[in-house]
């Protein structure tokens, strides 16, 4: 187990739960969100964790645990946890959950809330600001565009930068991207 994962485990699972940490309304917030509707149906069977490809190679990533913590209202611990971002969104759990919980979507709603609270891994920030600047998630180098021409491929769609910028403003995402370190 890596050092990082050890601290991660301590942070999420191995710490005694204090009643004061629980946010009893958190689960109701989640079931209002797209994909979170069935959260309360989870009966902790563990299908999601046992079939999760990431969990097989991680000592700390456990979708069932994330679901339970969410039901309990361990909001801070869930949102601050790095493991949240390990979900590959492969949807195996969603397809196999016997209770119809959209596990991957619940995890996505948690990520969305984490972002609102200011927790966002740098790589996602970079993707978002690239979309804002160029319309694409990656900054496609000039060289690649030239190579397209040589290969006889048509020019790349350019999108509509102004209207994307407007949407980012409306969604209050621009602020978020500037929040720290920029």
């Amino acid at each position: 187990m890596s050092e990082q994962e050890k601290t991660e485990q301590e942070k999420i699972g191995k710490k005694i739960i204090q009643a004061s940490e629980l946010d009893p309304k958190f689960k109701y917030e989640i079931i209002q969100m797209h994909g979170g509707e069935k959260l309360l149906m989870c009966f902790q069977c563990g299908t999601c964790t046992s079939d999760c490809p990431v969990a097989r190679f991680s000592d700390s990533y456990r979708p069932r645990q994330i679901i339970r913590m969410t039901q309990l209202g361990l909001k801070e611990r869930v949102l601050k946890s790095n493991t949240l971002w390990l979900c590959a969104a492969c949807f195996t759990c969603t397809d196999r959950c016997p209770q119809g919980v959209k596990v991957a979507d619940v995890i996505r709603t948690l990520k969305n809330i984490a972002v609102e609270e200011g927790y966002i891994p740098p790589v996602f920030k970079e993707l978002a600001s690239s979309i804002l600047d160029t319309g694409y998630a990656y900054r496609i180098p000039e060289l690649r565009l030239k190579k397209r021409e040589q290969l006889g491929l048509p020019p790349l769609p350019r999108g509509n930068p102004e209207s994307l910028a407007k949407l980012f403003r409306e969604m209050e995402l621009k602020k978020l991207l500037e929040k720290e370190g920029e």
Binding site: W85, K111, V115, L127, L173
Partner: peptide
Amino acid sequence: PMDPISHE
């Protein structure tokens, strides 16, 4: 790529 950040 925006889904983890904002589903909307």
